[in-house]
Design a protein around this nucleic acid. Structure first.
Ligand SMILES: Nc1nc2c(ncn2[C@H]2C[C@H](O)[C@@H](COP(=O)(O)OP(=O)(O)OP(=O)(O)O)O2)c(=O)[nH]1
Ligand SMILES: [Mg+2]
Ligand SMILES: [Mg+2]
Ligand SMILES: [Zn+2]
Length: 566
DNA sequence: GCCGTTTTCGGCCCGACTGTTTTCAGTCG
């Protein structure tokens, strides 16, 4: 996937143009770079399928940038970028990563001190030469030294679950001092990876200073002002706290939830209506006309309130203006979890423990789906264990929840399953998934998946793309064809809710939703704790525009059983 | 360079924090 490379190069261009004091173009390139970075579909696929016109459809990408993206896809580099770097006289791109060091400072450091690299910068700072520059001082010099060190060990983005759970911890600490406190930013949008934690709070009367003090003790203070404070947590994750008054809470939540480009879009709409939108509220001639809650802000802008998971400025604003935002699946409508592993294969808990936890989560039914077949790494079950597990399930004495016995079966390279039909027919449902031989030509992989879909025992195609968040890219396949086959043969496409998978990813969920495919959200749990991952899967479903009726495990048990008959 | 229910030309989000500024530019959210 070349998205990151394309975004990086466009961002280099933006920075270069800013160093060269060009107006507005830097913004255009930065905007396009963000758009590309946020695509979850590989940009080379978009280009292969729709050519330059498809690139032009990416928000913030026009004719000129589309041409440049084409060049990057074909050659992995961009002549225009290199030309700009030659014009500036040195490759500044490694200096871009230093926090607090922007294009203007980089330019000045180069012109006055000949700084061309991180090493030069470090040396200049240590020799005390930076403080002598006009506009720079001792503190700037110290900050540069600190951040050069930090840039080397720079914390990257983390999994949604990691940040989500840490954010809950921080939130809990703040509750005693807060009238209101809400996790915002990319976590509220349920993005699959997170850069930092953003928290918005209204302090209880007279507790403004206390809440800031409390927050400061939760980590190392990086920056502190009247209304904003940032700490670095022990985990290395940054956490921003913004304090606001109650009557601005809604507009502030809108601002702090973002995304940046979604907010800019809203602010432009406000401008066109002769209004002004900021975190403090929506204003008409300095008079506040909305701000206490988000719904009000969107309403006064003449649109539906957009669910946080859709706020990426990829068309949702227009939908909201036309009153066409879909009724997204809610977080509380899931009635069963159909992929989980127990000690029978590679899970850590017993069947009983898993079922009990599912009952506590309020589910009506649950499917145990240990690995079956020859897959050695996952300690797969053979026929004997399958029958033993079946009896154990039958003898479970847990009231109020129905338990199905399923199996997760490996799809072999030729698309056949790793378990003979004789055994497959013993299960209440069969999950098929690829766990080996990922490197396959697109056509072959498509055929392989479709053959598995056509197997009459298969009910669910699990983690369909095989990607691992931050670790492994999806294998290549013609997803449109795969989805078409799934629909035709009554196979449910899984939204794997495990935070390391989130597979299908949001953009493919959207594609499946548009094709009217049936989906199912499963946690793929390997322990009772993992069963809590369901919310992350629902979050991705919502990001993909998924409604309740498209999701099989939002159905009652009777309705769900009908699906299994197919 | 992008973009269009007032525009195909003429705009481009708005505000907090920092440092060294005596009035603001740079950087970031
Ligand atoms: N209006 C406006 N809002 C911004 C801007 N930059 C950031 N924000 C808002 C929207 C963001 O969601 C929110 C938090 O900023 P972050 O840098 O933490 O971004 P976000 O959480 O979206 O993504 P992340 O996963 O942290 O990289 O602040 C900006 O330039 N203008
Ligand atoms: Mg953030
Ligand atoms: Mg932030
Ligand atoms: Zn699996």
């Amino acid at each position: 996937m070349k998205n990151h490379l394309v975004a990086k190069i466009l961002n280099d261009v933006s920075y270069a143009l800013e160093i060269l004091d060009v107006e507005f173009k830097p913004r255009a390139y930065a905007r396009a770079a963000r758009s590309v970075e946020n695509l979850s579909k590989p940009i080379e696929d978009i280009y292969a399928e729709g050519g330059k016109k498809a690139l032009d459809n990416i928000p913030g990408v026009g004719e000129s940038i589309a041409n440049k993206i084409e060049e990057i896809i074909k050659t992995r580099s961009l002549k225009y970028r290199n030309k700009l770097i030659r014009k500036i006289g040195f490759d500044f791109t490694e200096l871009m990563n230093i926090e607090g060091l922007g294009p203007k400072m980089i330019k000045k450091l180069h012109e006055e001190l000949g700084v061309k690299s991180l090493a030069d910068l470090d040396k200049a700072a240590k020799e005390g030469r930076i403080r002598s520059l006009e506009g720079f001082g001792e503190k700037t010099e110290k900050k540069i030294m600190d951040n050069v060190e930090f840039a080397r060990v720079k914390n990257k983005r983390v999994l949604l679950s990691t940040a989500f759970n840490e954010a809950q911890e921080v939130k809990k600490e703040l509750i005693p001092f807060a009238e209101k406190v809400e996790v915002a930013g990319s976590i509220r949008r349920m993005k699959e990876t997170i850069g930092d934690i953003d928290i918005l709070a209204v302090a209880k009367r007279g507790k403004h200073e206390e809440i800031i003090k409390k927050f400061a003790r939760l980590g190392k203070v990086v920056m502190e002002g009247e209304t904003k404070i940032r700490i670095r947590l022990d985990s290395g994750l940054n956490c921003d706290l913004r304090i606001i008054e109650l009557d601005s809470f809604g507009s502030a939540l809108q601002y702090f939830t973002g995304s940046k480009d979604h907010s800019i879009e809203l602010r432009k709409i406000a401008m066109k209506k002769g209004l002004k939108l900021s975190e403090y509220g929506l204003f008409k001639n300095d008079k506040k006309i909305a701000g206490r809650n988000e719904e009000e802000v969107y309403k006064k802008l003449g649109m539906q309130c957009v669910p946080p998971e859709l706020r990426e400025n990829i068309g949702e604003v227009e939908l909201a203006q036309k009153n066409k935002i879909p009724e997204l699946i809610n977080y509380d409508v899931i009635k069963g979890d159909l992929q989980m592993h127990t000690k029978y294969s590679d899970g850590g808990n017993s069947v009983e423990e898993m079922v009990l936890k599912c009952k506590n989560l309020g589910y009506e039914y649950v499917g145990i789906s240990d690995h079956a077949g020859n897959l050695k790494i996952a300690n797969s079950m053979g026929a004997k264990e399958v029958s033993k597990q079946r009896k154990e399930i039958q003898n479970l004495n847990i009231k109020g929840i129905k338990v199905l016995q399923g199996a997760e079966v490996n799809i072999l390279a030729d698309g056949s399953l790793d378990v003979p039909d004789k055994l497959l027919k013993e299960f209440d449902f069969v999950i098929a998934a690829v766990h080996s031989k990922f490197n396959m030509a697109r056509d072959e992989m498509t055929k392989r998946l479709i053959k598995a879909i056509k197997n009459p025992y298969v009910i669910i195609l699990a983690h369909p793309t095989g990607r691992k968040v931050l670790r492994k890219e999806s294998y290549d396949a013609d997803w449109k064809e795969v989805f078409k086959a799934a629909k035709e043969h009554g196979v449910l496409l899984e939204i794997n809710a495990h935070p390391e998978r989130l597979d299908l990813p949001d953009s493919l969920i959207n594609q499946a939703v548009k094709m009217n495919c049936a989906l199912i959200i499963n946690t793929d749990s390997h322990s009772v704790d993992n069963l809590e991952y369901m919310k992350f899967g629902i979050g991705q479903a919502r990001r993909g525009g998924c409604t309740r009726k498209a999701v099989a495990n939002a159905l009652s048990f009777t309705k769900f059983l009908e699906l299994l008959k197919k």
